[in-house]
Design a protein around this nucleic acid. Structure first.
Length: 889
RNA sequence: AGGCGCGUAGCUCAGUGGGAGAGCGCUACCCUGACACGGUAGAAGUCAUGAGUUCAAAUCUCAUCGUGCCUACCA
């Protein structure tokens, strides 16, 4: 019975550290694959091991944590599988940069030593993001933390690669791929980010070989002309129907190249002539294939012009472009240069311009896998929420192209393919071969390329659970219940997990995919370091506490809309955290071991505020559960916020104070039960959103045992009394609250000092209403600060009073000596005007025969009732207005 | 070029066929036995624009304008 237990305002830091340690040491996040209870599982979207927590991670993981904590409260056996991915290119870049600072490069170290260095780096820094997730309160089963380069996961990668290869779904081939000259590796199409650039469109004349003229072609990349092997025109192009020759001379190279006819060419573009560079443009490559053209590479993998570029060898492509253009100008072959806006591809890891380049790479034949992945969503095996994303998902899968999976880097899963140095036989198998299967020679060379990181990520839902073994974990928790992710990796990751999961597990990897928003800055821009608009989640946590931050994220996670983050909002929810803290602090002044309400007092002993708050609580409990079940996190957060602040604190706590201070009374005992129960349930409802403060208060709340993580959601808890909606109590309480509000309104509008106690008269023709008001007179007097309320039948109106109308009754607030007649008249006029406006709308409807005939009965009825109420109210105000005018005159 | 969103109070956003909502900000009053990170009351919106469907539209349809994003091999 003292407030000394708690500080006046909530101090999160210490509390957060303490309880997180406690949860870990008590193993409260552990899943149990041997237990029979209903399983619920989520695999974390593994953050890059090089990563640092940003807002996107924060939102993503907070939502997952809310789901996991909620499901635990619902009694589920929850597995939240954590881990990181090895982020091949990104990690290699980081470590290379570090080496460069020491004046070294990876080639000096050699492959093996370099990989050792990366592992060392990972040991030292790789845990950073994991620790940051812990600051968020993430309740992952940390004992099971996985890494895509772990032994088990690597085994899964090999097995998948080998099987797909033997099924013909992985092949090696020479195709145009995206080459990042800085990272020195191929990239998948998805890993290229397109950005519009203003460039030049160079019109270049290719003279006919017979010297009779020429054809002008247009290109944005003149330097590639050095590798041209044809000039293409549309077969139906009448401009070129009768050419005297079928060859042109490639300028600068002075090489004769054929004029070919291909329907790919767009006659309406420029002059209708297209230069063909099979080695440096995907379309040109296909044309080249069709016409059997050579494909000389003029831009090398090192990003420099090759020997094929003749005198331009060794130049940087952009430098070469200038030189080529200058040379063309000199030869008077440059017809014109226009400015032209076109998309330029950049490496998603280092932003260098990527070169389309002909290269021998490994590919996954995506179409057959993609079809099954799309079908699984079409037939509802996997549900995408919100549905809006379904079309994006289908669109991509239905138009999917083969996936380039080989990377020319060292950090990653080395492709399990070996070539015999003797006979050239290729062996693709899970175990390292000792001898050539064809000639028996033991000189074998393994493919040096590694696999795309996303290749191993695609296996994450089952590789983390022990696949290819048929583990207990897989049996219990695969398919996972839901995948929570932002849309930006819908293709990178979700679609590919679907493909792999279905192919190798014969079942989808998750039942639901919940696609959440992207977190943006206050202006709605994507947060990025280069823009300098990044808000660091850890700074926010430091300043406002994790619970406030989490609640903010949840409250703004409306489906289908981005979250614009600003500190101001976090501050608002920090205040909410503090409000809860103080409500608890107040409650603890009155709660003892004995006041706990495992069973609530019999209904007859409960006061109206108790019955009311319990009824509201039962509804809010239901709302919160339903909202989380359907991933409407903002609705859940909103419902509980509204309830705690504006019902529990504003009304209930104020209403029960007299009872609580009535020492030794029965009503004190009964109300303590109501208070205990409501606070207890609030903590449980809030726990998924605010794990720390709820745990802290839980432990201080008499009558609770152990961690709140082990509590049951109120509806499912067998150990506490059932509560249910009580419409009667709600109606009664609403009537009382309306009266109080109306008195306060008069006080406010008339500018009456709160310290001034007033008398009021309540007049109603309804004996039932009078009885209710009479019964709760003291509550009204107390909360409306009245020194006396008399309850009467309609009759003489008190003189010099301000009036209000509630539920068909009149309320007179006596203001002898202090009433300002003019002000009161003004106030009443304002009320009347407001009512008239509403009345207009309603009567328009009721006077409309179509409305009466066609609108549903209940809508008509509702409007009729409203009409009656408003008319009566208007009349009462009108009478009072007249009276006030008389008195004032 | 296609596709998907968004445009509601000063700001940030809920609401998606029947009485315009919240948080922050603003105004007035108040340190009333937990909370000034608080309390009570109040002001504030042609629900982007135009047309249509409907008894009824912020909500459905179409168009327009503005805005954001995604996909794309038009040189």
């Amino acid at each position: 019975m003292s407030t000394e237990l708690l500080d006046k305002s909530y101090e999160p830091h210490d509390v957060e550290r303490r309880w997180y340690d406690y949860w870990i040491s008590e193993k409260l996040f552990s899943a149990n694959e041997e237990e029979k209870s209903r399983g619920f599982s989520i695999v974390i979207p593994p953050p890059n091991v090089t990563g640092a927590l940003h807002m996107g991670h924060a939102l993503n993981n907070v939502l997952q944590d809310i789901l996991c904590r909620y499901r635990r409260l619902k009694g589920d056996n929850v597995l939240w599988m954590p881990g990181t991915d090895h982020a091949g290119i990104a990690t290699q870049n980081v470590v290379e940069k570090k080496l460069a600072a020491e004046g070294k490069d990876r080639h000096q170290l050699g492959r093996e030593k370099f990989i050792d260095t990366v592992w060392e780096w990972r040991e030292e820094y790789g845990g950073r993001i994991i620790n940051q997730l812990k600051r968020l309160g993430a309740s992952c089963d940390w004992d099971r933390e996985r890494f895509t380069m772990d032994g088990g996961l690597s085994k899964a990668v090999r097995k998948v690669f080998v099987q797909l290869y033997h099924e013909g779904l992985i092949y090696q081939g020479n195709y145009i791929i995206n080459w990042c000259p800085r990272c020195q590796t191929a990239l998948a199409d998805l890993e290229v980010e397109h950005e519009d650039h203003d460039g030049g469109l160079y019109h270049i004349k290719y003279p006919f070989a017979d010297g009779t003229g020429g054809i002008v072609v247009a290109t944005t990349r003149p330097e590639t002309m050095l590798g041209d092997t044809a000039l293409a025109i549309h077969p139906d192009d009448e401009r070129y129907a009768n050419l005297s020759t079928d060859k042109v001379v490639l300028p600068l190279m002075e090489r004769e190249i054929p004029i070919i006819r291909d329907t790919y060419v767009d006659m309406s573009f420029g002059t209708g002539g297209l230069k063909v560079t099979p080695a440096h443009d995907p379309n040109d490559f296909e044309i080249g294939e069709r016409h059997g053209l050579d494909a000389p590479k003029v831009i090398g993998d090192d990003g420099k012009m090759t020997a094929e570029a003749g005198r331009f060898e060794g130049m940087d492509p952009l430098e070469c472009r200038k030189a080529v253009v200058a040379a063309l100008e000199e030869g008077e072959l440059l017809v014109k240069v226009e400015t032209h806006r076109h998309a330029v591809g950049h490496c998603y890891r280092c932003e260098t311009i990527v070169e389309p380049n002909l290269s021998r790479q490994w590919f996954v034949k995506a179409k057959p896998l993609a079809k099954k992945a799309a079908d699984a969503v079409r037939n509802g095996q996997t549900r995408i929420v919100p549905e809006m994303w379904k079309s994006t998902y289908f669109d991509w899968l239905d138009n999917i192209r083969d996936w380039c999976i080989s990377r020319q880097i060292w950090w990653g899963h080395q492709i399990p393919a070996w070539t015999c140095d003797g006979c050239g036989q290729m062996m693709v198998q899970t175990e390292t071969p000792e001898f050539c299967t064809k000639c028996g020679l033991s000189d074998l060379t393994q493919e040096t390329d590694v696999l795309d990181t996303w290749f191993s990520s695609a296996l994450w839902p089952f590789s983390t659970m022990g696949w290819p073994e048929d583990s207990r974990l897989l049996q219990k928790f695969y398919p996972t219940s839901v995948l929570v992710t932002a849309f930006d990796i819908l293709f990178f990751w979700v679609a590919r997990m679907m493909m792999m999961g279905i192919h190798f597990k014969n079942d989808v990897p998750f039942k639901d995919v919940y696609v959440h928003a992207l977190v943006r800055d206050e202006e709605g821009k994507k947060m990025s370091k280069s823009k300098g608009n990044v808000i660091d989640p850890l700074d926010i946590i430091e300043k406002y506490g994790t619970d406030a931050f989490r609640f903010t994220l949840a409250a703004f996670a409306a489906q289908g809309r981005d979250v614009k983050m600003s500190e101001k909002r976090v501050e608002g929810y920090r205040n909410f955290v503090n409000k809860l803290w103080n409500a608890a602090r107040f409650a603890f002044m009155h709660l003892t071991e004995e006041s706990r309400g495992f069973f609530l007092p019999e209904k007859e002993r409960l006061s109206l505020p108790d019955k009311w708050i319990l009824s509201r609580l039962s509804k809010v409990t239901h709302e919160v559960g339903e909202a989380i079940d359907s991933y409407r996190f903002n609705d859940a957060a909103g419902a509980i916020y509204q309830f705690v602040w504006h019902e529990f604190c504003d009304w209930y706590l104020e209403a029960i104070k007299p009872a609580l201070f009535d020492e030794g009374s029965d009503r004190q005992a009964a109300t303590r039960g109501g208070l205990w129960r409501t606070l207890r349930d609030i903590l449980v409802l809030l726990h998924p959103f605010m794990p720390f403060i709820t745990e802290e208060i839980w432990h201080k709340l008499p009558g609770t045992k152990g961690s709140i993580l082990r509590a049951r959601f109120p509806e499912d808890d067998e150990n506490i009394a059932k509560i249910e909606a009580d419409e009667g109590a709600e109606a009664e309480m609403n009537r009382i609250m309306a009266i109080i509000t109306v008195v306060r309104n008069i006080r406010g509008e008339m500018n009456i000092a709160p310290s001034l106690s007033l008398d009021a008269t309540y007049q109603s023709p309804d004996p039932g209403a009078r009885e209710i008001v009479e019964r709760h007179k003291s509550m009204i007097e107390n909360l409306a600060r009245l020194k006396g309320l008399s309850v009467e039948e309609p009759g003489a109106r008190p003189k010099a009073s301000a009036t209000a109308v509630v539920d068909g009754a009149s309320l007179f607030v006596q203001l002898e000596g202090i009433i300002d007649f003019e002000k009161e008249a003004e106030r009443l006029e304002k009320e009347i005007e407001k009512i008239s406006k509403e009345l207009n709308g309603v009567s328009r409807k009721l006077n409309n025969e179509d409305f009466l005939a066609k609108a549903p009965e209940d809508v008509v009825e509702k409007n009729r009732n409203r009409y009656d109420e408003l008319t009566e109210k208007q009349q009462k105000f009108q009478t009072n207005l007249e009276r006030i005018r008389e008195m004032g005159a």
